[in-house]
Design a protein around this nucleic acid. Structure first.
Lengths: 325, 325
DNA sequence: ATGAAAGCGCTAACAA
DNA sequence: TTGTTAGCGCTTTCAT
């Protein structure tokens, strides 16, 4: 910048003003500065700028589990759009579901003085963020609640969606529903399971815990478990799959067997229409979830001092036929 | 840092040494410093640190078209892994296929003094990056070549893959092949089209340009175009779809019609096995593409001064049956 | 092994 | 409207 100033025959402050489009600079001087900038290939150092001006790195941090996962990629896309509207860049970090790594990454993001944090939490305790939040780095949690920290949160209506979905099964006469999930250690799974239990209980259906199977991580396992449940005496007449990886395996096995069991899945799929087995899904708008969280974050960054808020994004039942009828 | 120093009764330099795990600090002093750090909730300001030390923001920039797109999400995931191995964070920006926006984002990334740039180019001219590269910000281009700039490049073998795929169609006796693509303005599409032409030419098949249709942006359009081509007199007996969005529409229309046309697609799909119409794909390893590019970038960041390199990632033909036989 | 002082590139505060 | 000076938080240099 001093070089530019020397070349243009002005002070560094004037260069600073020109580069930042500040008012009260003579057009003629501005021209000279701009010329010098071009000749010298000058580019303002964003680091130095935000170091001095204290705030506004024009960067937000997004912490997710894994960017390659389409759910998180969709979140990242929606967040990036909102960030772009605020001339802000996105620093993305993947926790890989490891709470220790999550903590380290969040600390690192804070050390980089991001203007705010968007977190899909992996760990159970985020109290270590309290000091950062107090020091002025707002954080918004999405998809799962923060642990041990009062903070803005945007969640899906997992419980209500599951309840509504299972209610359609119950109304179609199903009483024995096989429930397939990956892990009860995940908040969303617990909520969806609770919703299913509520719907069954409301119908006075006894819940058979032998029909609830967890630890299903991939479509292959899902297919195997569906087979096992169907081969039991008194098998389920319907299945509720708690995420789309599981739905995929269930579709495959039910189709393979020519089963007539009804299938309900949480999470929609692009290709559901093309799959060989009809099923109903509890769908939701991932982009709306992410946009709501990002917009809330930018409101905080802009200084909104109100109490932490909790938003619930509704789900939508998409019926595509139940072969069990 | 001065507060920590005061609290621990040492100089700021000693605090700096402790925080950076520098050698030659008495364990006892280090203890005092660490205690003060904990008490005061001190976190080193990464901005100030890299401002002073000149280099090493421990950040790389990734410029893609759109993070929500699964192809780019996969790239981002693989890049994030490599970056994580180098204790580096990832600043992700989406060009949305707009060359002007691309240029602005790349300049912004440079202004933030990223250690290096990974670019899936949208524009045709990247000469504006020359000065940045000369000033020491290495850039690696992936999936498409850089325009007007000698730089490291990692590409898929689009042409070879298309050639091999279309050769299987030709060997199965097909001479009239409908070719479906989105836009010839995209490098990868031009290469894939060229490979298809080569394979047809090698078989002495006259290329009927009325069977080459571009401007197909979504599955719906693809389905419509497939229908139009099939309704022509002397319709194609096989189709080559140049990306998976197009393949999806083609599958749908061919299945709907109970067609026996052979289908070949560029890009694999997770769910190809479950789709109602068998087709062969030219598959490739997106993660390998991204890892190769990222690893090359980190070699440049580490100071590798060798000539710009060009890597070609091979494709793989996955045959899943051709209903036309 | 530790510290004092200078300065990275920029902008806030003030002065002219 | 423009310039001067100080200093953001840290690390380098050089002294001790």
């Amino acid at each position: 910048m001093v070089d530019v100033a020397a070349r243009a025959g002005v002070s560094v402050k004037t260069v600073s003003r020109v580069v930042n489009n500040a008012p009260y600079v003579q057009p003629e001087l501005a021209q000279r500065v701009l010329a010098a900038v071009a000749e010298l290939g000058f580019r303002r150092n964003h680091l130095a700028s935000s170091l001095r001006s204290g705030q506004a790195t024009a960067t937000i941090g997004l912490l997710i589990e894994e960017i390659a996962n389409p759910f998180y990629a969709t979140i990242a896309g929606a967040v990036a759009e909102v960030a772009s509207d605020h001339d802000t860049m996105l620093l993305i970090a993947s926790s890989e579901e490891d709470p220790a790594r999550e903590q380290q990454l969040l600390r690192d993001l804070c050390a980089r003085r991001v203007d705010g944090l968007l977190v899909v939490p992996a760990g159970e305790d985020h109290s270590f963020l309290q000091s950062e939040v107090d020091l002025g780095t707002p954080a918004v949690f999405l998809d799962r609640p923060a642990g041990e920290l009062r903070a803005d949160t945007v969640l899906l209506d997992n419980r209500g969606g599951a309840r509504a979905g299972v209610r359609t099964l119950v109304e179609a006469g199903h009483r024995r529903v096989g429930i397939l999930l990956d892990s009860t250690s995940v908040y969303t799974m617990r909520e969806r399971l609770a919703g299913a239990r509520e719907a069954l209980a409301a119908a006075g259906a006894a819940i058979d815990d032998r029909l609830v199977r967890d630890g299903i991580r991939d479509p292959g396992t899902a297919a195997r478990v569906v087979g096992e449940l169907l081969d039991q005496p008194d098998p389920p007449t319907a299945f509720f799959s708690l995420n789309n990886r599981i739905s995929l395996g269930a579709v495959e096995e039910l189709h393979r067997r020519g089963s007539t069991a009804a299938l309900l899945g949480f999470d929609d799929f692009d290709l559901a229409r093309l799959l060989p087995y009809p099923f109903t899904v509890v769908a939701y708008d991932t982009r709306a979830l992410a946009r709501a969280a990002a917009e809330l974050l930018f409101r905080r960054i802009a200084g909104d001092p109100s109490e932490p808020r909790s938003l619930l994004i509704p789900t939508d039942l998409v019926e595509r036929g139940l072969p069990g009828r």
